[in-house]
Amino acid sequence: MTVIETNKWLDRYTKKKKRTFSQNMDIQRKLFCGHLMDYFEDATTDDIHLHLLNHGLFIPDPLDKQVIQGMFEKDYWKIAKIEISKLLQAWDGPEVPVFLFPSNYTNKPLMREFNGIAGLSYHNKIFLFITNRTEKNELRALLTHEYNHSCRLIALNKGQDELNLLDALILEGLAETAVKQRLGSKHLNKWTTIYSKEQMEQFWKKWIKPNLEIKKMSRQHDQLMYGHGNIPKWLGYCCGYYIVSSYFEKKDISMYDALRIPSATILKESNF
């Protein structure tokens, strides 16, 4: 398991920074995404940069040096390294590179709703976005969530074009259940409790149940996960947590085993 030395990339970024926003965007893209090209297929540095920005990477800002320095002082890289080796042992999951960066602390919804914490996972890599104020257990919770995704994706063994909404619901539900088990309810994401059980039963019938087969690549998939227009905010995330927690309530099962159970079986044996 490797926590990549993005601290060295960030150090170089702070030393190379210039005057204007667009110059610094350019430096950020070349420095970070140049390294990341090897980890994505058929993507330009522009594609990678935009994708990471959309998912919470910091944007160049006069205060970023200070935030980066604060992150160095707290040595989050070391915390991540210790945590990931524990997770790997517990779930017997894949060895994946972990990339740690500052998050976009200038984005108000990200600060308000996620305390400046974001992440992005694949079966073969993980991105973590935090601030200099992130607490140790918040980082552990984020890493637990994201690494749970990598383990689940490896167990599912499906291509991007095969993954569907049901897989995403169970994926998110498993990840937050893992956070609850390891760190307690205090560290659960806001979206786990945004709707009551009764509300979710209605949403389930109206939005989710008819669309379980929708593929990840379709636009509707993300609209159902994150919310959009009439679709309630974080619908899929919250629904997935309800499904998986009801499954764990009914079954006496470890996370290690649950990670290897097909999505349809988990749904069938839940309350939904």
């Binding site: 944007i59 991007q160 994150y226 995330y237």
Partner: peptide
């Protein structure tokens, strides 16, 4: 917008970074 897949933590803002 580029879609390089992956699963997020709940935060996603197409073009919302500034």
């Amino acid at each position: 917008s580029s879609n390089l897949g992956g699963y997020g933590y709940g935060f996603y803002r197409p073009w919302g970074f500034g």
